[in-house]
């Protein structure tokens, strides 16, 4: 499996009135084509910053990001992003929210609409096209976020704590559905990078888990998850891996 994303010696420093604050220190990482990679770590370890650097939303202070072998400059249009806070526009309907990213890419109305409907269907939102975000539960709002990210037909899906704002039952349901979507050969997305502070979530979803430490954020371990799918959340092997990751974080 070749690397689709390569991070080389990424450092991120923010200037502060009281002096510089180093968020990430010399992070080097490869994301393999077709894998689900989870980035875990304590609050403030820079995992969300790392995700935004991968997407090109913020530049690193030092280091290089390569996508498919090429140095990245600016926003990577081959990535789609799902946010913890859903980031929906409240004055737009579900369909219009999904179409927003497509219109921004210059697609014509008809293509935008067809594409939006396809991904609304894929995430189980059909029937809700005319709903406004305030009419939806948290789980349904995140389905809109997911449909919007998938509709741009990205190669890589970036997810920043996508299920953290949801209750336990809804997040279990959405995690299962995410893995179904990842395995759907009809979808162009085949690589997922998910940032989470929930270790069980990482073990359930990922092929590989990268553990970050904080102050400044740096990689302490990369763990391959070789549990068969679908994952048995109650199995001793699952629990042992959760414990191992936990011991690296605390």
């Amino acid at each position: 499996m070749p690397a689709i994303i390569e991070l080389e010696h990424i450092t991120k420093i923010y200037p502060r009135p009281e002096g510089e604050s180093q968020i990430l220190a010399d992070v080097s990482l490869e994301v393999m084509d077709g894998e689900v990679l989870a980035v875990v770590g304590p609050s403030g370890c820079g995992k969300s910053t790392l995700l935004r650097i991968i997407h090109g939303l913020i530049p690193p202070s030092a280091g290089v990001v390569r996508f498919a072998g090429r140095a990245q400059d600016g926003i990577n249009l081959s990535c789609g992003m799902v946010f913890q806070s859903f980031a929906l526009l409240p004055w737009l309907t579900v369909e219009q929210n999904v179409m927003v990213g497509l219109e921004a890419r210059g697609l014509d109305d008809e293509t935008c609409r067809k594409r939006a409907m396809k991904y609304i269907d894929k995430v189980g939102l059909d029937g809700n096209e005319e709903a406004y975000p305030r009419e939806l539960s948290g789980g349904m709002k995140q389905r809109v976020g997911l449909a919007r990210a998938l509709a741009v037909e990205p190669k890589v899906l970036l997810m920043d704590e996508p299920f953290s704002a949801l209750d336990a039952l809804t997040s279990i349901n959405l995690r299962e559905e995410l893995i179904d979507l990842w395995g759907d050969p009809a979808l162009p997305v085949d690589t997922i990078v998910i940032v989470t502070h929930l270790i069980e979530e990482a073990v359930e979803l990922a092929d590989r888990i990268v553990v970050l430490a904080s102050n400044p954020g740096r990689i302490v371990e990369s763990i391959k998850v070789e549990l068969p799918r679908p994952r048995e959340r109650k199995s001793p092997e699952f629990s042992a891996l959760v414990d191992r990751v936990f011991s690296l974080i605390v």
């Binding site: 789980g139 349904m140 039952l169 279990i172 349901n173």
Partner: peptide
């Protein structure tokens, strides 16, 4: 979604 999550659990 909660009903389906319950079934998963």
């Amino acid at each position: 979604s909660k009903v389906l999550g319950l079934c998963e659990i």
